[in-house]
Simulated assay, not measured.
Amino acid sequence: MFRTLTLLAATTLALPAFADGHAASGDAAEGEKAFRQCISCHVVENDEGEVLAGRNAKTGPNLYGIIGNKFGMVEDFRYSDINQLAASMEDVIVTEEVFVAYVQDPTAYLREVTGDKGRSKMTYKVRKEEDAVNLYAYLASLSPEPEETN
């Protein structure tokens, strides 16, 4: 099992973009380091219940499968009203651009997208754009193919 995970990690990190075609311009290995700041609130747990990153944190949503999918749609997570409003907008897909803007200032991003004055539940802000880009690459390396969105 360890050998398989090591091989999978090495293969994933060697790719300049993630397998489903969503460009990930950052460094996944650096993103893994930056993710240490996220583990107090978030986990990346696949559909089989295997924790791929983080601990069993439940303050924030599970980040498995968010890349390339509709914004704010993690099942059974209670989002803020403004976040739900953003999720109801059909064109908000978690791309690198959306992810980076959101994690650097969640409330400002949601206010810009929705025109609403609400607040995000996520109060942490990733300070450096480079860290945000690397976080995206790391989460992309752990993500399945995105679901079809119509």
Rank of each mutant, 00 (worst) to 15 (best):
D105R: 04
L139Y: 01
E130I: 04
V103G: 00
L15D: 09
L135K: 05
E147W: 08
A9R: 12
D105T: 13
S141C: 08
M1K: 13
A87E: 09
A17L: 04
A108Q: 13
N150D: 11
L135H: 04
A9E: 08
I93Q: 05
R119V: 07
V113K: 13
R111L: 11
C38Y: 08
Q104A: 10
V51M: 03
V44G: 00
M73E: 12
L15Q: 09
R36C: 09
G21A: 05
F99N: 01
V43K: 11
E130H: 01
P61D: 07
G31N: 03
L52T: 02
K33E: 14
D76A: 07
G68P: 02
I39M: 15
M1A: 13
P146I: 09
D27W: 00
D20Y: 12
K58R: 13
A23K: 10
N46M: 04
V126Y: 02
S143E: 06
M1P: 10
V92R: 08
G68E: 06
A29E: 11
V126K: 02
D81W: 02
L135S: 03
E50H: 08
A108N: 11
G31E: 01
L5H: 09
T95V: 10
V74F: 06
I82R: 07
L5S: 06
K117I: 13
R55L: 14
S40F: 15
G115S: 07
D47C: 06
N134K: 05
E148V: 13
F71S: 10
S143F: 06
A34N: 03
H42M: 14
E129S: 03
T107K: 12
E30P: 00
P144W: 04
V98A: 14
G31S: 05
C38F: 09
E96T: 01
A34C: 03
F2V: 06
A17K: 09
E130K: 10
G26H: 01
A132Q: 00
K121F: 12
K58H: 14
A132R: 00
K121W: 05
I82S: 11
S80L: 10
